[in-house]
Design a protein around this nucleic acid. Structure first.
Length: 545
RNA sequence: UGGGGAUUAGCCAAGCGGUAAGGCAACGGACUUUGACUCCGUCAUUCCCAGGUUCGAUCCCUGGAUCCCCAGCCA
């Protein structure tokens, strides 16, 4: 049971077993982000997993905002998350907010109180922490642990009614302060926060904690498999305790999987925020960031992200995938879909001395010979051109196939040209190349008289469209996740001024191109009035540097 | 030194008692109007280590090592 580019994994196995054994007859999953930031590649793994798994077995998936902490959340994140999930290509059957269930959760808390399984604690956060014990020592009971049910109900109602200040009281589960699993030492269920909520306004001044709310949300929605990352594993006993103690009719199953990390970048929300706040990048959608909005602005197709997530597989270990794998998949996805055009990023003028002045020849050029459906365009050719500065070397070694004095190369789609002289300025730097062309060698003419070692790209000078190119490289050094300092590499973004070929000016702004010998590019849609091309990913190169 | 997890090639990852998939990377070669793409080939006698069970162990048992997570009124 594998899909094309996915790998079989343990959660799929569990789901299949649950279906076969009759434990459940329909799969319901959910993607439950907290709207307190931007979605990134790490979330993409959860999104793909939840949506694809349910879909594979004919089930459904809910998008649910886990909005139990108004101090951290904002409606603007709700909107960006909706856009990001849709952009990846997924459609939810139901959209929910945890806050929809606040009343129901309150009732569940009352159930626990009546069963003697929850109590109102007047201790401060510091006192509670001190009573909790440590990793190796048991905790001690709170002095308020044995209040009567009546007293607890009265106090909890008063908490809801706004009778107490933030932090004055909490509702706690009453389990076991000596439990070896710290999560079972009377965890907090409700805290007081006189804070407006983006969905419920000022209706509430007490809010449930994640550990209490999440299992209830899952149970209420009929979620069969509640998938989360491994750091929640030791919270599973409490998850099950909540479902059981609140006597929820539906019992969801929590399953944990390993986080997805990628070399040369970070997925931690904290570190991402630090980078954005450092002003070293252009906001949350900076094309260098692993945020979905950043990757979208970068021009990475959503299909590539989905494919990457599937191809990296899924296990319980927290692995670090090589970013080269992502880059490979992006190239693979773009290879056949993009028109291949020419642009010069670092221009060097070339004068074809034997080509008539004032003449422009229009050459028909196929956009992508591996995908003829992309059609063709007309390319102007004339006496003055631009080529890439590093396609010429004054004293080229034998391993350099391109231009040098006396050397001949093919101009893609056009003619062979041979360089015979160099023009310098007063500083001694090269300002132009003088070349001759051979009319016999026109592309498509079938000329086979002699061979040339290289084909280079070019742009005719009088029709060249000026453009800025933003070239992106690794955001951080290879193992950035290992240390706390997240210094953005200065090489992560460089830019150059150059020219693109005539035909590119007419393309829709979201057109992705393969710029011959440079890589895949797309216009920066955030500044449509400027002509800035983002390099999505470079081409591979076997040329020894 | 409490509890919970993880460990298969440089990286990700299949494998579920019958003799180590696949992808990325790397390295050779072919092809080439992109030093791209494509194609062909190479790349774990061994699965963290040590014992044990078995005709047979990456899979089962015992012991050990290393790494990750948990002491928010965050999620």
């Amino acid at each position: 049971m594998k899909d094309q580019d996915g790998v079989s994994h343990f959660i799929r196995t569990i789901v299949m077993q649950d279906l076969q054994s009759g434990h459940t007859n329909r799969i319901v999953t959910r993607f439950p982000p907290e709207p307190n930031g931007y979605l990134h590649l790490g979330h993409a793994r959860s999104i793909v997993l939840n949506f694809e798994l349910a879909d594979e077995f004919g089930g459904t998936t809910h998008l649910r905002f886990d909005d139990t902490n108004p101090r951290a959340e904002d409606a603007i994140f709700v909107q960006s998350m909706i856009e990001d999930v849709q952009w990846l290509g997924y459609r939810w059957e139901r959209l929910h907010y945890a806050s929809e269930y606040f009343e129901h959760m309150y009732d569940c808390a009352l159930v626990l109180i009546r069963k003697g399984l929850a109590y109102v604690d007047d201790c401060t956060a510091e006192q509670i922490r001190a009573q909790r014990g440590t990793l190796s020592e048991p905790g001690i009971d709170s002095p308020y642990r044995n209040r009567t049910v009546e007293e607890n109900i009265a106090l909890f109602s008063a908490m809801r009614a706004g009778a107490f200040a933030d932090g004055a009281k909490v509702l706690r589960a009453r389990i076991d302060m000596r439990a070896p699993n710290i999560n079972m030492r009377d965890p907090v269920l409700y805290r007081i926060a006189h804070e407006a909520h983006h969905q419920t306004g000022t209706q509430w001044c007490i809010y449930p904690m994640y550990a209490f709310a999440h299992p209830l949300e899952d149970a209420l929605e009929g979620i069969t498999h509640s998938l989360c990352t491994v750091e929640f594993e030791d919270q599973r006993p409490f998850y099950d305790w909540v479902v059981r103690s609140c006597e929820m009719p539906h019992v969801p199953k929590q399953i944990e999987f390993g986080r997805l990390n990628v070399t040369h970048t970070v997925m931690s929300k904290r570190k991402l925020r630090a980078i954005v706040q450092s002003q070293e990048v252009d906001g949350w959608d900076d094309p260098r960031l692993p945020t979905l909005s950043g990757m979208r602005r970068r021009g990475i197709p959503p299909e590539a992200i989905v494919s990457f997530v599937k191809q990296t597989g899924l296990s319980k270990s927290n692995g670090v995938a090589d970013i080269k794998m992502l880059e490979h998949i992006v190239r693979e996805q773009l290879q056949l879909r993009t028109p291949k055009t020419m642009a010069v990023l670092d221009p060097l003028r070339v004068i074809i001395t034997n080509y008539p002045e004032g003449t422009i020849e229009w050459i028909e050029g196929e956009y992508n010979s591996d995908n003829p459906s992309l059609g063709s365009r007309r390319i102007p050719f004339g006496r003055e051109l631009f080529i890439e500065r590093d396609d010429f070397l004054l004293d080229p070694p034998a391993s350099f196939y391109r231009l040098g004095i006396g050397r001949e190369v093919r101009l893609r789609h056009a003619y062979f040209v041979r360089c015979h002289d160099v023009v310098y300025d007063d500083d001694g730097s090269i300002t132009a190349l003088l070349c001759t062309y051979d009319p016999e060698t026109k592309s498509g003419s079938g000329f086979t008289g002699r061979k040339v070692k290289a084909t280079i790209h070019w742009v005719e000078a009088s029709h060249a469209m000026p453009a800025t190119f933003a070239l992106f490289d690794h955001l951080l050094d290879e193992h950035a996740d290992d240390h706390d300092d997240v210094r953005v590499l200065p090489t992560s973004r460089t830019s150059t001024q150059g020219y693109v070929e005539h035909a590119m000016a007419d393309a829709p702004i979201d057109t992705r191109f393969q710029l011959l010998r440079h890589g895949f590019f797309i216009r920066d849609a955030k500044v449509p009035d400027q002509t800035i091309y983002h390099r999505i990913v470079s081409l591979k190169s076997s040329y020894p540097k």
